[in-house]
Write a protein that binds this DNA or RNA. Structure first.
Length: 268
DNA sequence: AAGACACGCAACCGCAAACAA
DNA sequence: ATTGTTTGCGGTTGCGTGTCT
């Protein structure tokens, strides 16, 4: 895999096709476009987000960027000791199910946790393991939690990690996956989530399911076309039950965004 | 001061599951 | 029931930066 080291702008400039997808690091301008688009229009499908936001990026890339970096509820501070303990504990019981682990750690992403594990904890545990091995045996319990888990989650779920019940317990919803709709019925080509037919409905549904099928009272049943729904801030400091008329919603939403994401202060 | 090395992080890839047509 | 599309996940890669020699 050869990844373009510099900003995608440059990579894009190189491609002959204007429509060619860009890769590599995101430029601030791309970030702003994506952020603004999602803020105002929500996510129908990620591929459409890329298009509508005028980004020559794959939907996948947009999704990743949003989830791992732009999302306003992300914690910016380093992982604390306590969080580290949580990670270790969850990794031992769940294996390399980073998304599941992340779901239990508000403000943290699976990628962040995975990176943290791979770059720090695993190393530390390996060192401890080899020390323990030097002293005798038995160190393996803590050393390579869930054994080969560190080497590969998918396969080992089958042959490693005794953590029986391989089925993790249901995870409560965590992140504010949201469907957002403009008051006028999703202005200008944005498919409206409430109208049921659009891809959004499936996306939102699956995201909700992913978020744990929380009985989100605020959800109110998806039909109300004039509402903006924010889902499940429950583990955060956000009000758990935001259901706001659009004009106010945008203000509230933006203020939260600006609060959480100084980068976007220019929008505020 | 300069080069080598190690580390952390962002982002890509491939695969599988979920969903829609 | 089948096929195509989209999303989500975990593993891996490689750049940028800090630290050490």
């Amino acid at each position: 895999m050869v990844r373009k080291p510099i900003h995608a702008d440059d990579a894009g400039a190189k491609s002959t096709e204007a429509s060619k997808e860009r890769k590599g690091l995101w430029s601030p301008e791309e970030d702003e476009r994506l952020f603004t688009h999602i803020t105002y229009h929500g996510v129908s499908t990620w591929s459409s987000v890329a298009q509508l936001a005028g980004l020559r990026r794959s939907g996948k890339s947009c999704r990743l960027r949003w989830l791992n970096y732009l999302r306003p509820d992300l914690k910016k501070e380093p992982i604390s000791k306590r969080e580290e303990e949580t990670i270790i504990s969850l990794q031992q019981s769940l294996g390399n199910r980073w998304s599941t682990i992340a779901a239990r750690m508000p403000g943290r992403t699976d990628n962040e946790i995975k990176n943290y594990w791979n770059s720090r904890i695993r190393k530390r545990l390996n060192a401890a393991a080899s020390r323990a091995a030097g002293c005798g045996d038995g160190g393996d319990s803590a050393a390579e939690p869930s054994g080969a888990a560190a080497a590969g989650g998918k396969e080992d779920s089958a042959n490693a990690a005794p953590p029986p019940a391989a089925q993790p317990t249901p995870i409560p919803a965590r992140f504010p996956v949201f469907g957002c709709q403009l008051p006028d019925g999703a202005g200008g080509g944005i498919s409206s989530p409430g109208s049921g037919k659009s891809p959004q409905s499936s996306t939102t549904a699956s995201m909700r399911q992913n978020a744990g099928d929380e009985s989100d009272a605020s959800d109110g049943g998806g039909g109300d076309s004039d509402m903006v729904h924010f889902l499940s801030f429950d583990d955060l400091d956000y009000p758990g039950d935001l259901l706001i008329d659009v004009p106010g919603a945008m203000d509230a939403w933006e203020s939260q965004l600006c609060y959480a994401n100084p980068m976007m202060s220019s929008l505020c």
